[in-house]
Design a protein around this nucleic acid. Structure first.
Length: 404
DNA sequence: CTTAGGG
DNA sequence: CCCTAAG
């Protein structure tokens, strides 16, 4: 917390001054606001529009996402207090304690936060193209099946779901940006980092972590405690690390989304899709009354990004390594257990078969949302896996029709 | 604890 | 998503 504060003090950009900056305040101001927020449950929403305006105008100029993040996080923080749709009765105090508790706890888990932040890092988005897109580096020493990683990532949106919020924002706010290219290399980039050396995975960019990591962590924490009490055993398999999960800015917070939409037009199709996926969050479930079989109600649609992550994960670890895939590729997704991932893969497989059979024809609505090349890759990976097991799948008839 | 398979 | 059995 100490270093964090100092960094913030030094770093806080003067460049904010030029923009609509009721929200651009000193760190001390913000901290006091934070305190007030912790005391005062109904802190009024503010500065979301400032954040947006900031993003629009500043992104092009500044290559440092941190600055952007500052603007976002600090304005976002008090907003969280406003999202008190679950603060009925004692819910208020409960939530506050939860947040405070989570916040304090999270300080000890900074490492994890950094890790997850790095994985889905916003850093890469604004690095020059020369940095990203380094695929060859990850195949050394890895059980990487050759020829599988070279599918065109360009056609996909950024990878790790945790970063979607920001990356999508960047796409959103950068009209003529090359953000597609930049972000598309992100997964591979972070992956390369992580697979080569876990340490640099944890250490890079230690300073200047946006507060968002902390905030999001509270959210994830609180949410998990509230809603998944009965699922503890399941989630605790990743308990140590998953507490840092779900720090993403996606519509996880319904009210925030509304807030944003009142001030700005969000019209990107990509974003809409993401939006739909998680807008209905179980964040406010009160955990006692809701018990079994509720998870089914709160299904979360798999976004294309998640699917891409899954496919990347399978191509990285192989089929069946669901836990590994979860740990590396879905670190920031507090939901999505290895079983979920496995199930999704099963469905993808089905979809890929289906897609293969009636190529060009009308695909089932479920698989229609998934880009065709992804399904193809699913098929390839599956066939490769099955081949390694000695089995033969019919959908791979063109390639490996026989074992030998 | 993980994975596979069926529901 | 959930449940259960098998390793």
């Amino acid at each position: 917390m100490r270093t964090f504060e100092m960094d913030r003090r030094i770093d806080f950009p003067e460049t904010f001054a030029g923009f609509k900056c009721e929200s651009v305040r000193t760190f001390e101001d913000t901290m006091s606001d934070m305190n007030r927020f912790l005391m005062e449950p109904k802190y009024e929403n503010f500065a979301v529009d400032s954040f947006l305006g900031l993003g629009m105008e500043n992104m092009g100029i500044s290559s440092k996402i941190e600055e952007f993040s500052h603007g976002f996080d600090f304005s976002f923080l008090p907003d969280y207090g406003g999202l008190d749709s679950c603060s009925t009765q004692d819910g208020e105090t409960g939530l506050k304690l939860e947040i405070l508790d989570g916040f304090l706890d999270e300080v000890d888990e900074v490492e994890d936060i950094y890790a997850s932040h790095d994985l889905s890092s916003t850093n890469n988005h604004f690095r020059p193209d020369t940095e990203v897109k380094k695929k060859g580096s990850e195949s050394d020493g890895e059980p990487e099946p050759c020829g599988l990683m070279n599918f065109s990532a360009e056609s996909y949106s950024p990878g790790i779901s945790g970063s979607i919020g920001l990356s999508e924002w960047s796409n959103e706010t950068l009209p003529h940006a090359e953000s597609k290219n930049v972000s598309s290399g992100k997964v591979e980039d972070s992956l390369a980092t992580s697979s080569k050396d876990k340490h640099c995975f944890y250490e890079s960019e230690d300073d200047k972590k946006p507060l968002s990591t902390f905030i999001g962590s509270w959210v994830g924490r609180g949410k998990r405690r509230k809603t998944n009490l009965r699922n503890c055993s399941r989630l605790d398999s990743f308990g140590g690390t998953s507490s840092c999960a779900s720090y993403d800015f996606r519509p996880r917070k319904g009210p925030l989304k509304k807030c944003i939409q009142t001030t700005t037009e969000i019209n990107a199709s990509d974003y809409d899709q993401l939006d739909a996926s998680e807008s209905e969050d179980d964040f406010c479930v009160t955990n006692t009354s809701k018990s079994r079989s509720d998870r089914r109600k709160h299904q979360r649609m798999w976004t294309v990004e998640e699917v891409v992550n899954l496919v990347d994960g399978v191509s990285h670890f192989g089929v069946g390594k669901w836990t590994d895939i979860k740990k590396l590729f879905f670190r920031s997704a507090s939901h999505r257990t290895p079983i979920d991932i496995r199930d999704k893969w099963r469905n993808l497989l089905k979809a890929s078969k289906h897609n293969d059979e009636k190529a060009g024809g009308k695909r089932r609505p479920a698989s229609r949302l998934i880009p065709k090349d992804i399904l193809h890759r699913v098929g390839e990976l599956a066939s490769l896996h099955s081949k390694s097991l000695g089995f033969v799948y019919d959908y791979s008839r063109s390639r490996c029709s026989s074992k030998n």
